[in-house]
Design a protein around this nucleic acid. Structure first.
Lengths: 133, 133
DNA sequence: CTGTATCCTGGGCGATACTG
DNA sequence: CAGTATCGCCCAGGATACAG
């Protein structure tokens, strides 16, 4: 975490206090990575917000074993997901969204809704922009 | 965009239709990059949701000229930001959040609020996790 | 079944220099 | 002032093989 020098004369923090953005950026550096959203939204669809490793793997097309493990580990570390190991053979592991994780699902749903409602506009803006070179 | 094989027996899409996640992932691949959030949230603080290039540069500590240009260009392409060039010498350019962009600020504010309310818990979860190795 | 260990590549992004 | 061009580093993440 880097601290920027405090120069009152040049510091524009009276306009943008830059605390919110910093924290949100840190959140996005977690949940904004390639697979976290998929895992959270997929887990949400399972009964009891619970699924085992292999179920997630099948439910998320294109994810590699490696990235599923790593991303789940990060989500677990952030307290968004809980891991439960059943000592059987073959081993079974279940992942479940925590209360904290569920609380995050609501603002995320806000993004989902925005996309649903505005994606067309974005696409149109893009083609318009690209048309103008 | 890759299509997964359609095997009804194994396809768990009745559980997770995987359309929402795909669109949200695409959104996050834009707005979830290193600087977009900073620009949007910073622009929001300026009167009239407007600021010139150099103001943004000063208001966002650490951003390079290159990334400011590139990120602004992407936001403009997506229709989230409008660029206005005043043909003076020296040239002046102002950036303004569009209606579409403003509509995105609301779900983004949801994320900001979540961070504000839950960041402590995340940090605590992390130290707990790290303590257990 | 659920991971872990390596290797490898593409691209995001910073630093720097130059332009109208 | 507001860009564009070039170079180079780093690392997220894919492929593959192996392990408990």
């Amino acid at each position: 975490m880097k601290m920027q020098p405090k120069n009152k004369a040049l510091d524009p923090s009276h306009v943008c206090n830059s605390r919110d953005p910093l924290a949100v950026r840190e959140l996005l550096s977690k949940v904004g990575d390639k697979w976290s959203i998929f895992i959270l939204l997929t887990l949400e669809k399972f009964p009891g917000y619970r699924a085992r490793f292999s179920e997630l793997e099948r439910a998320i097309p294109g994810i590699s074993q490696r990235m599923l493990t790593l991303t789940l580990r990060n989500l677990e570390r952030d307290g968004l997901v809980r891991r439960e190991l059943f000592p059987e053979v073959p081993p079974r592991v279940e992942y479940e969204i925590t209360r904290l994780g569920k609380s995050l699902l609501q603002p995320l749903q806000g993004l989902v809704d925005w996309v649903t409602g505005h994606w067309e506009q974005v696409k149109k803006a893009q083609t318009l922009f690209d048309a103008g070179r």
